[in-house]
Design a protein around this nucleic acid. Structure first.
Lengths: 181, 181
DNA sequence: AGGCTCATGTAAACGGTTACATGATTAC
DNA sequence: GTAATCATGTAACCGTTTACATGAGCCT
């Protein structure tokens, strides 16, 4: 449902090629909506067929041609309408918690190791996000509307990673205690 | 990948029918791994064909027969091996944050309304989880291993909802400020 | 010589959702 | 009479992932 919306939103600022979008997604929207380049190319074809975007081929010398897409009025209207609809909280598919349903005295060590690994992954992510925050968003109250939206995305990332880290620490401490019969 | 694992984990305690699993999932594992009854029935067929579970038909008078599945040794081994493998942090697909990438002065009110709605959903969830916690897990350090795993799942749910609520409050406050040009 | 970047795509497989189907019993 | 519960399933569709494909230029 929302892959097309994520692409349309990315085209708000200016026109992009599929290749541009794929790269841009890795750093921005794709953080909340991971997408592969195959999906982007296919979705762009559909959006063009539906008249939400318009394609224009840009010839390049000594490089493959680029196909640049820009929003149409219909595409813009679609976004505006979508913004008024309610979203569901995201499905929380956490494989690690499924594993913890199997926790017993025999597999405790394996799960401790797994949580430690994950703890480190989340610590790395948090450091990355905090660096971006310090560099690009030192004073959120002074941002214009568009940049406030992006700030809030990053902010959510930071809060989530901090929470997950805290949970990992709790989990490691709890599993280290001798278990009751 | 992990749907089959979620089912196998649910069969650890005792044998279940597809119908049982579907109901159980709604309250336990399905919280971290939402699954429909169709998926469960299909996956059980596959698991039975692969020898991970064994099916037994239980005749019932005046009710449809039940097909009860129990773990085989092969199924148990599969879980043990899976527990030692590393999991990735879950993909964080948050449609609301994609919407915030489109934030500008024209759609600010629509997004404020949307965040308020979401805030309420998360407050309701948090209340539900905290009630379960108070009733079933008053003293986590005294739990046996298996129940500790479940406790940690619920604990993660509570921390996540609290974080999301705090983020909603921040977002509402920030969007209420007059934006810079 | 080998691998990365630019730039676009097709095809097959897998996973998940939605709709449809049946049929008896129990509760309001 | 209407809806929910018990209990199992099929079929079509949609979204996503993985693998494969091409081909020039640039860097080490």
């Amino acid at each position: 449902m929302a892959l097309s919306h994520a692409i349309l939103v990315s085209l708000l600022d200016r026109a992009h090629s599929g290749y541009d979008l794929a790269k841009r997604f890795d750093q921005t929207v794709g953080f909340f909506w991971p997408v592969s380049h195959q999906q982007i190319y296919q979705e762009l074809h559909k959006l063009a067929a539906a008249g939400r975007v318009q394609a224009e081929t840009v010839a390049q010398s000594e490089r493959p041609n680029r196909i640049v897409y820009q929003l149409t009025d219909a595409g813009r209207k679609l976004i505006d309408q979508w913004l008024t609809e309610a979203t569901e909280p995201p499905a929380f598919k956490e494989e690690l918690l499924v594993k913890l349903f199997a926790l017993d005295d025999d597999n405790r060590d394996a799960l401790l190791a797994e949580i430690s690994r994950r703890r480190q992954r989340h610590a790395e992510r948090l450091a990355r996000y905090e660096a971006i925050m310090a560099e690009h968003y030192p004073n959120p109250a002074a941002l214009n509307a568009r940049r406030r939206g992006r700030y809030l995305g990053l902010r959510m990332g930071i809060l989530t990673e901090r929470t997950t880290l805290a949970w990992c620490d709790e989990a490691l401490a709890l599993l280290d205690l001798p278990a009751a019969g």
